[in-house]
Amino acid sequence: MSRRLRLALFWAAAVVFAVAFTAACTGLPDFGTLSHPYGSRAIAAAFHQRTANTISSVNFDQRAFDTLGEESILFAAVLGGLVLLRRARDERLAGVRRGRVLPSTRMFGSLLLPITLVTGVYIVAHGQLSPGGGFQGGVILATGLHLAYIAADYGVLKAIRPLAVLDAADAVGAGAFAVLGLVGLAVGAAYLQNVLPLGTFGQLSSGGLVPVINAAVGVEVGSGVVVLLAGFLDQAVEIVSPTGKDNGAGR
């Protein structure tokens, strides 16, 4: 298809889509409506489970199965990253020259570094009672760590980053979530049922299974993101393609 034809097709389709979507939106309840039946039920259920952060209750208790799927996607992406970003048969590792960092990258890193690190620590410390949790804490810490090394030196990062351990931690975190679901079955309840003692509302130990799963997710996300980023970093910094391969139909 020529570029012009493609654009013409797009515009025709986009007009139809826009009209249909606009018409659909007129049928929606008003913005800010007071009626949220599922939401209200979820809040009541979170109270019942003594989980102060309703979203954690939905994510790790009421709809924990969604989160199980979501963490499996992350796990799959980490494994997929390992596979896709592996060193190909014809590639080799180059010695890393010190301090060879793009100025724009350096600026980007140093700008975001303090923000992300502080935020990460704050979120992990506050756990599941207030906004945040394993996922947010994990991502932000893993990124923050990397931003520091990008802005500084790659060799240092390689020396410190225990990739083998993190690999294993990622798998353990992902597996732990699915195994924790079995606890319910073991005591004669349903899969992923929150059968641990619920504790006192608002306490760090409240919520039963929620903080446990939260921790598993934190381990998986924190280590998974580091491993995934490591794949990209190795490609960006270290792995060298054989002569001629990069030529191709290059333009």
Partner: peptide
């Protein structure tokens, strides 16, 4: 909650 995730994921 979503804002924090978005900050980590979308912005970084």
């Amino acid at each position: 909650d979503v804002a924090l995730s978005q900050l980590g994921v979308g912005a970084a």
